[in-house]
C-alpha cells in the first residue's frame, strides 16, 4: 500500500515559517535538520499524530523557495488568490477570530462555498493557505 506521508509548501524564510506553522497555526515540529547551503529539512505535523498500523503520520515540508521557477509561479497564484494548500478545521469562524487576533491577514473571511465553509489566509512566507470546515 502506498501512503501519503509528505506534502510541501515553498516558504521564503524557513525560520519565519517554523514560527508561523507551529506557534501561530498550531502544528508540531517534526524535523529540523541542517542540509547545508540548500537549507533545512523542516517538517511539521498534526498535533499528537503518530504512525498507525504501518501508515505514517502526515508531515508538511516547509521547503526553501530558492528555485527560480518558484517565485513567478507563486506570484501568479497569489495574485489570483489561489491557496498553496488547504487545512481542515472544525470551526472556521473560531480559527478566523483566533488567528486574526494574532495578527494574521485573511484575504477571504469565512464563506460558505457549497459543502464547505472556507477562509483564506496569508502565511507571511509567500503563500495563501485555505482553512476548510466541512458542513454536515
Amino acid at each position: 500500500m502506498i501512503s501519503i506521508h509528505l506534502a510541501s509548501v515553498f516558504v521564503t524564510d524557513q525560520e519565519r515559517a517554523k514560527d508561523f506553522y507551529t506557534r501561530v497555526l498550531g502544528f508540531e515540529l517534526r524535523n529540523d535538520l541542517d542540509l547545508g547551503p540548500g537549507g533545512r529539512w523542516l517538517t511539521v505535523g498534526n498535533p499528537g499524530q503518530v504512525s498507525d498500523a504501518g501508515i505514517p503520520a502526515v508531515e508538511l515540508l516547509l521547503e526553501p523557495a530558492g528555485h527560480p521557477a518558484v517565485a513567478p509561479f507563486r506570484e501568479a497564484l497569489v495574485a489570483d488568490g489561489i491557496p498553496a494548500t488547504s487545512f481542515a478545521v472544525e470551526d472556521v469562524e473560531a480559527e478566523h477570530a483566533r488567528l486574526t487576533a494574532l495578527g494574521v491577514t485573511f484575504v477571504q473571511p469565512p464563506t460558505v462555498m457549497g459543502p464547505a465553509t472556507t477562509a483564506v489566509l496569508d502565511d507571511s512566507c509567500g503563500n495563501l493557505v485555505q482553512l476548510a470546515q466541512m458542513n454536515a
Binding site: G81, I82, V107, M113
Partner: peptide, 16 residues
Amino acid sequence: ERAEQTLFELVNRLSS
C-alpha cells in the same frame, strides 16, 4: 455579496 474578492473567491462563489 462582498467587496474586494480575489479571482479564487469569486470562482468558488459561482461554483457553489
